[in-house]
Structures are given as structure tokens and as C-alpha cells.
């Protein structure tokens, strides 16, 4: 039976005078991977941030598992089963890998000792590098750390912002494989923002296309991949 995990209804927000989202509606079902693709500045990251309450919604509604979280403070949203791996990874560079991971569990009230083996099994590289400082990891390892840190809070819904940013194709394929694995084995619900539309749409069950703050298209991953306008705009024509 399908149940809705996240429902965003006519969400509008912005920064100062700039209107970044102009009434976005989408939903993510439990156990689904949904991707949000779009060009630079379309508002993808703003939408993810806005779900976390920063920037706050100016109008519209955000529901998580039937609960209205539109006005909840950010730190409470992040403690209620939502985790975000933010754009640009934003790991804590001078703290060790282990400390980074522990911080992911702590605010959500999870016991780090229970969550660590799970994350280390997903990303064995992190186990090897646990005492190293975060800033000394390679880009791919930092991305693993950012996702691992988000998973430490044992989220119901994982928000991933551009996990393939600046990574070699091989590494980004590994990351995507891990996301699929998490979804299939643990039933983790994922909302994925990507510029790499090809990989993202292949991975996702469904996708939305965001253009300057509005959803212009939606459909299953395969459907969207097959549409000529998507191929032209986001897949570089005959890519």
C-alpha cells in the first residue's frame, strides 16, 4: 500500500525580493526515490532547504507523514526523521571522520554506537579513515561522509543535494549504487536533487522537472528520460 511520506503543496519562498519558488507541489511516497532535476538557479536546492525550514515557506504547506511541518523550527524538523546531505557536502573539516558521524546521530537522539556499524558497512572507506580529519578526505570520500553523517540520524526521509557534484564518473556511479542499495534493502525514502539528469532519472522511480521555481513536468524516471524536451534541455541533445 502506498502512503505519502512527504507532501509539498503550492510552496512559495524566496530570499529577500527574489522569489525562488513560485508555488511548487510534489509528493514523495514511502520507499520511493524521487529526483528533482533542473538547471542552475531553478530552485532545486532552495526547495530542499525550504523543506527543512530555512528559508521558511512564504505560502503553501509541507506535510511529513501527515504532520504539518511548515512552521516547525529547523532543528526540530531535522530531529523528526528528516536528514539532509547538503549541497557542497559541508563536512566538518577539522574534526575526525568519527566525530563527523557522531554529530550526525547526536542531535536526533540516536545512539552512535548502534548506527556506526551500519554506516561503516555501507561505506567501508569511512571505517578505514575514521581517525582522519574530514578535510583531508578526497572529494568522493567526503561525499560518502556527508551521506553517512546524514544516515546516522536514522532518517525516514533522506534529502540528497547534488551528491555527484565534482566527482569522477566512477565515484558518482558508486554513490548512486549505494543510494539504490539503501532504498532496496532498508526501504529508505529519498528525495534527490541532481544536475546529472541522466544518472538521476535512471536511479529514481519518479522525477520532477523544476524550471525557475515551477514544476513543469513530472513522471516516472523512464518516461522522463524518453521525452525529447528532457533530452534536449538536460541530457545535452544526443548525449
Amino acid at each position: 500500500m502506498k502512503t505519502t511520506m512527504l507532501e509539498v503543496d503550492n510552496l512559495a519562498t524566496g530570499y529577500g525580493a527574489v522569489q525562488a519558488l513560485k508555488g511548487v507541489s510534489l509528493h514523495v511516497d514511502r520507499g520511493e526515490i524521487v529526483t528533482l532535476i533542473g538547471a542552475n538557479g531553478a530552485g532545486k536546492s532552495t526547495l530542499l532547504m525550504s523543506i527543512c525550514g530555512d528559508p521558511r515557506a512564504r505560502s503553501g504547506r509541507i506535510m511529513l507523514d501527515g504532520e504539518d511541518i511548515t512552521a516547525k523550527p529547523t532543528h526540530e524538523i531535522m530531529r523528526s526523521g528528516v536528514a539532509q546531505s547538503p549541497e557542497g557536502r559541508r563536512i566538518f573539516p577539522r574534526m575526525s571522520v568519527l566525530e563527523n558521524l557522531v554529530l550526525g546521530a547526536q542531535a536526533a537522539g540516536q545512539d552512535p554506537a548502534q548506527q556506526l556499524p551500519r554506516v561503516f558497512d555501507l561505506f567501508p572507506r569511512l571505517r578505514e579513515r575514521q581517525s582522519q580529519r574530514g578535510g583531508t578526505l578526497s572529494g568522493g570520500e567526503q561525499q560518502m561522509l556527508a551521506i553517512g553523517r546524514a544516515l546516522m540520524s536514522r532518517p525516514r526521509l533522506l534529502l540528497l543535494d547534488e551528491p555527484s557534484l565534482g566527482l569522477a564518473p566512477l565515484i558518482s556511479r558508486q554513490i548512486f549504487a549505494t543510494i539504490r542499495d539503501l532504498n532496496e534493502r532498508e526501504g529508505l525514502t529519498v528525495l534527490l536533487v541532481e544536475q546529472n539528469a541522466n544518472q538521476a532519472l535512471r536511479l529514481a522511480h519518479r522525477g520532477y522537472v523544476l524550471v525557475t521555481g515551477r514544476i513543469t513536468m513530472s513522471g516516472s524516471g523512464a518516461e522522463l528520460l524518453a521525452r525529447p524536451e528532457i533530452r534536449d534541455a538536460y541530457l545535452g541533445g544526443g548525449h
Binding site: R90, F92, R94
Partner: peptide, 24 residues
């Protein structure tokens, strides 16, 4: 303690702290 780690995390990256549910 958790609060001490939160301070250090705050020094490193405030936005990441918010994303992890730390009350800034």
C-alpha cells in the same frame, strides 16, 4: 559532551549544523 562537540561543529560549519538538527 554533545554540547562541546556541537560548539566545535558550529565553528566548522553553521549550515551543516542546522542540517544535522543542532539548535544553533
Amino acid at each position: 559532551q554533545p554540547i562541546g562537540r556541537a560548539w566545535e561543529a558550529l565553528r566548522e560549519d553553521e549550515i551543516a549544523c542546522r542540517a544535522l538538527g543542532i539548535n544553533i
